[in-house]
């Protein structure tokens, strides 16, 4: 699955960032940036202007929903996928209302990430 997507992974867990890195590399992504909290996510998003962001929700400093709102103001076109184990209906509604592209229910797997990236690439054609 060759692609030129620039990805940003934002999660306070080293393990999850590591898993995302492995999976995104397997998916053919060549440029992957990382952030470990909401504050860093906003900074990295503005600095690197990625095509796709995987954003955790429950994080210290600034949570994913707040980061989503701020990133969308500056980068309205970026595809932000909320990646969380806590995909409750309230959070889903709030994320979608604030411009999230999709939701990835943890645990993350290669299949789930592939299907999301394929959707993004198909829409970009």
């Amino acid at each position: 699955m060759e692609n030129n997507l620039v990805a940003l992974v934002c999660d306070d867990s080293i393990l999850i960032r590591k898993k995302f890195h492995t999976i995104l590399t397997q998916c053919g992504c060549k440029t992957i940036f990382e952030a470990e909290n909401g504050v860093q996510a906003v900074e990295q998003a503005i600095a690197q202007k990625p095509d796709v962001i995987f954003l955790d929700i429950v994080m210290p400093d600034k949570d994913g929903i707040e980061a989503l709102k701020e990133i969308k103001v500056t980068l309205p076109e970026v595809k932000i996928i909320m990646a969380s184990s806590a995909g409750t209906s309230n959070l889903l509604k709030e994320a979608l209302k604030n411009g999230a592209y999709d939701f990835l229910q943890k645990p993350i797997t290669l299949e789930k990430v592939v299907s999301l990236l394929e959707k993004i690439l198909k829409e970009a054609k």
Binding site: S13, I14, L15, I16, V58, S84, S85, A86, G87, T88, S89, N90, Q105, K106, P107
Partner: peptide, 19 residues
């Protein structure tokens, strides 16, 4: 991090069930 993330994952799924 791995052990904390397991607790976080489990609690997240619990929140989804409760929701």
């Amino acid at each position: 991090d791995a052990v904390s993330e397991f607790l976080n994952l489990h609690n997240g799924i619990y929140l989804v069930n409760m929701s």
